[in-house]
Design a protein around this nucleic acid. Structure first.
Lengths: 210, 210
DNA sequence: GCACTATACGAACGATCGTGCTATCTTGTC
DNA sequence: GACAAGATAGCACGATCGTTCGTATAGTGC
């Protein structure tokens, strides 16, 4: 939520400004998963939010500034829609399963029209060094660390084997999630989600301490 | 190779034209993995190939025409760099392993500067219906079918269990490949490739008929 | 209620986008 | 070696890009 509280902005004080800013960022985050953060045009965004192009510039100094704010906004949405509900499912193995399930659910519920925001934008900026890529990478790293911590906790509780390291477990879980994203967005077929769900069960059952 | 032999083009007869066309498509395929097929601009491409913008238009009727030709060109490269070398590794399980290895190798050798062409472009157009998406999806489907066939062959030869269907095996293999692509392009760290290689060994060893 | 300032708009900018038209050079054919 | 056709360049077009400026409006703190 207050993920972007420490930016250089003097923090908007007027209520109408805050409402507009949120409306802009909601539209920008949704649009970015379809047209990309770069393909996103100020003109389109203005039309979509019922504002003028110059009106947008009251909130953002530049397009890059808008892109970074959009990333932070999407991070807050992802936290609220995936990470926190995932933690509500329990700890250790239940947490690891929970995070995977809430991730797949957020794809199915189409929280963003173009699937996972960070999978979409990460793929767009992976070869474009700069502040935008760094911010995206930062969040993806946080997400991976979340999975690793859950896997390590599951090992510490004796729920899965510690014959392989937690990073590897998280890697294989995330691979199935990324695959689900790619295929589901491309085909709109829930069977893609099901394939990855089956894979997750196979993977985690195979790691279970018997 | 002759993947685009049946397009409406009257097929260029002059040698200089053919050379130029190939030079353009080579540059376009490389650029598309970094800036995207949409982000690719005719002006940039002209500068990069030492031609004029209008000179490019002698070869392609429109930008979309160029995009589709670029996809077909990239498909030919992928075939030559990944699929055929993969088949040279053997049949059945050896083929499945071979395709995965040649794919990871083509990432490491940076055949395209932005990783796998179809992972990059597929992610860009997954939410943009049209001829371009259809062409990309077509190739990705072909690739998946290749993996499924290899898995089925491995089962028929009794090399891996047939307790799970071949589509599921191919799915989990491709998930690890996609994850390797995403992480390797983002970080340029070969450790990403190694993580997926370990995952592949774990996956296929787990399916081995003992 | 007043002053202050964040918010929003209209208009315009230089640059670049994809795309045609026309002329000039170059290649392959007879 | 002439001639037709293909290949390339120069130039200009309308549209759209991100951005800036000046100005009017409206919410907030005193």
């Amino acid at each position: 939520m207050n993920h972007h509280a420490d930016t250089s902005e003097p923090r908007p004080t007027r209520s109408d400004g805050r409402r507009s800013r949120i409306a802009i960022l909601d539209a920008a985050a949704a649009l970015a998963t379809v047209d990309g953060l770069e393909g996103l045009s100020i003109g389109d965004l203005a039309v979509r939010t019922g504002m003028s192009k110059s009106g947008l510039y009251a909130h953002f100094k530049s397009k890059q500034d808008l892109q970074i704010a959009t990333i932070d906004h999407a991070a807050a949405i992802f936290d609220a829609e995936v990470v926190r509900p995932g933690h509500a499912r329990g700890e250790g193995l239940a947490l690891l399963r929970g995070l995977a399930e809430t991730f797949l659910d957020h794809l199915e519920r189409r929280v963003f029209p173009g699937g996972c925001f960070f999978a979409a934008v990460g793929s767009e900026f992976d070869s474009r060094p700069g502040q935008v890529k760094e911010r995206v990478f930062e969040f993806i790293t946080t997400w991976m660390a979340e999975l690793v911590a859950a896997a390590a906790q599951a090992q510490a509780r004796g729920e899965i084997t510690d014959a392989i390291d937690a990073e590897q477990v998280a890697w294989e879980v995330d691979a199935l999630l990324l695959m689900a994203h790619a295929a589901f967005v491309m085909t709109a077929d829930p069977a893609a989600l099901e394939r990855s769900r089956i894979g997750l069960v196979r993977l985690l059952d195979g790691l279970a301490v018997r």
